[in-house]
Write a protein that binds this DNA or RNA. Structure first.
Lengths: 187, 187
DNA sequence: AAGTAATTTTTACAATGTAAAGTCAGGTGG
DNA sequence: CCACCTGACTTTACATTGTAAAAATTACTT
C-alpha cells in the first residue's frame, strides 16, 4: 500500500488521510482550525477533494466526532467490571486528554447530529456511562440518578477544558492538581 | 432621543442597537447566526459599522457574553438568602431559558476571554454560585465541594440545552418534564 | 488497446471579516 | 452667516472560506 506517495491522482487512502489531518489540526490549533481548506491543504490535496467522501465540512467533522465517541466508549471500558465512579472519572479524563475532540463531539452547530454513525456511536457511549447501577440516592428516579452522574461528569469535564476549575483552587493558597480536584469533586 | 429614525448618519445609539440585534439573531436563529454582517444588516447599518465600537466580531460577542453573565448573576440572586440548591437550580434554569446566550458565554473561541468587562462579569457570576456554604461532604476540600456543585449544575445545563437529558427519560415509559428531571437530579 | 468508471483538480461564485479611504452630519471659530 | 473640523458611518477593496459544476487524470475492464 503506497499510502503517501507523490502520485497526485488516486491517493488511495484519502478518506482516512483527511480524517487524520483534521485530527492533527484539531489537537494542534484547536477547534477554530477545522476549516475544510486547511484540512485539505494539510493533506496535500485540492480544496474540494473531501466532498465526494464527506459531502461537506459538517459531514467530515461528524465522522471525526463519531470516532471520538468510539474512543470515549473504549476509554470507559476498563478490563474488569468498573464502578460508576471509575466510568465517570474515565469520561472526565478522556475529555481532559482530548479537549478539542471532546468539544467537537458536543458542538451541535458544527456536526450533523442526525448522522447515522454518529448517532449510534454517541448512544453507545452514553449508555456505557448511564446504564450502571451506581449509588442511586433513595427516592430518586433512575433517570434522575443517571442524569445526575452524567451531568456532574460532563460539567467537570467542560469546566476543566475551559480552564475554569483551576481558577477555583488557585484563588486560595491551596495548590492541588486538576486531577486531584476532579478526584475529590466527582463522587 | 431618536432611537431608530431613518437618518442614516449619526445613528446615535448604535452600540446598544447592535447588541440588541445580535441578541435577537442569537435567540431566533442560534449561535450560527452571529455573523457580523448579519448583525449589522439587521440593525440597518453598513457591514463595518461595528468596528469603531467593538473592534471586531469577537469584541461584540464578548460584550454580549458579559451581559449574559450579568443577567445570570441577577438570576442567581433571589430576594431572600438562598440555599446552594436554589442558586444551582437558578443557574440551570437560566441556561435552559437562554440557550444561545448561555452557550455563547462559554465559547472560548468566539469571544475574547481576556476582555476586562467579561472577566469581571463572569467572575462575579462564578463567585455567586461557588461561594455558598452548601452541604459539603465530609472529608472534601472546599474547592472540591464548589467544583462538584458547579460541575453538576453546568453539566446538567449543557446537556439539557443539547437535548440530551430528555433522551434519558423518553427511553423508558416514564415521561417527565425536563424541569422535573433537573429538580430530581440536582441535589 | 480502447473504452468506461472512479477519483481528483480547476474553475467559479457567493458570503464572510476586516482594513483603509471616503462621505456626510453637527458643532465651533471667524 | 460661513468655512472648517471632528466624529460617525459608508464605500470600496481584498483575502479567506465553503461548495457546486465542469474538466482532467488515472485505473480498471473487456
Amino acid at each position: 500500500m503506497k499510502t503517501k506517495e507523490k502520485g497526485r491522482y488516486h491517493h488511495g487512502d484519502l478518506q482516512a488521510t483527511l480524517l487524520r489531518s483534521a485530527r492533527v489540526l484539531l489537537e494542534r490549533d484547536g477547534i477554530a482550525a477545522l476549516k475544510l481548506r486547511a484540512i485539505t491543504r494539510h493533506a496535500g490535496v485540492s480544496a474540494t477533494a473531501a466532498a465526494p467522501y464527506f459531502g461537506n465540512l459538517a459531514g467530515l467533522l461528524s465522522v471525526l466526532a463519531a470516532q471520538g465517541f468510539d474512543e470515549l466508549t473504549e476509554a470507559m471500558s476498563p478490563p474488569h467490571a468498573p464502578s460508576a465512579r471509575d466510568v465517570g472519572l474515565a469520561y472526565i479524563r478522556f475529555a481532559i486528554a482530548n479537549p478539542g475532540l471532546f468539544t467537537l463531539m458536543f458542538r451541535s452547530d458544527a456536526i450533523n447530529r442526525t448522522d447515522a454513525h454518529l448517532v449510534t456511536a454517541s448512544e453507545r457511549a452514553f449508555r456505557r456511562l448511564a446504564a450502571l447501577p451506581g449509588p442511586g440516592e433513595s427516592g430518586t428516579t433512575q433517570a434522575a440518578t443517571m442524569a445526575a452522574r452524567w451531568g456532574k461528569a460532563h460539567g467537570l469535564a467542560v469546566l476543566a477544558i475551559d480552564g475554569l476549575l483551576l481558577s477555583l483552587t488557585n484563588n486560595g493558597d491551596t495548590c492541588m492538581t486538576l486531577d486531584q480536584l476532579v478526584n475529590e469533586a466527582f463522587r
